[in-house]
């Protein structure tokens, strides 16, 4: 694990040195990323109640989701308008920047009974890809644990309504969760993620 990170960091270093040359005239990663702080919080750590924390986000997931915002392939209130302002290279720079920061969990309200049920449901339906109770970003699936509940609710709404496409395998799990537990199941999961502070 540690070794993997060291190798990853070395690769990143080589990467950023190389792209530093080819991207002359491009704003630096921190120059670009600092403009997001007004909405996502300083260094990408959001104070809620709804806008997601993006610090610690997986490099690959960040690139994927920004490109999807840009192409308006996934629903958003405002990110589509923002993402269109950045080139592919700039998105890569920011991906490295935000994935290198630490996700910080802030206190938020939750129902502990629902959270307890959510914990079980997570294990059964979601843990396979959202490892460590949804804390990991290595699996390129978005950090769920400690993410703002209102944001998760919006996102799950988009997934289950079909407005945002799910990966086939995730869809299978979410479908069977909904079949077995209905919307209460999703609600329990959101409370479980919110309970991790």
């Amino acid at each position: 694990m540690k070794q993997k990170n060291i190798i990853k960091n070395c690769l990143l270093l080589v990467f950023s040195m190389a792209s530093g040359v080819s991207l002359a005239g491009t704003p630096s990663a921190s120059m670009l990323a600092d403009t997001c702080a007004g909405c996502h919080g300083t260094n990408g750590i959001s104070n809620g109640p709804a806008t997601p924390t993006i610090a610690g986000i997986s490099n690959d997931y960040f690139i994927e989701v920004m490109e999807q915002f840009k192409a308006a392939e996934i629903p958003s209130t405002i990110m589509s308008r923002i993402a269109k302002g950045y080139t592919e290279d700039e998105i890569k720079l920011m991906a490295r920047h935000f994935s290198g920061m630490k996700f910080k969990r802030k206190p938020q309200q939750f129902d502990s009974k629902k959270a307890a049920l959510g914990k079980k449901l997570h294990k059964k339906y979601c843990e396979k890809c959202h490892e460590d109770g949804g804390r990991k970003s290595d699996d390129d699936a978005g950090i769920l644990a400690g993410q703002w509940a209102a944001y998760l609710q919006n996102t799950l709404q988009d997934y289950t309504s079909g407005d945002r496409e799910m990966q086939k395998k995730m869809k299978k799990k979410v479908d069977s969760l909904q079949k077995d537990h209905g919307n209460d199941g999703l609600d329990a999961l959101i409370n479980f993620y919110a309970s991790q502070q």
Partner: peptide, 11 residues
């Protein structure tokens, strides 16, 4: 509305 309030808290 939720994002506007988040914007206020974050900025």
């Amino acid at each position: 509305v939720g994002y506007a309030h988040s914007w206020f808290n974050n900025i």
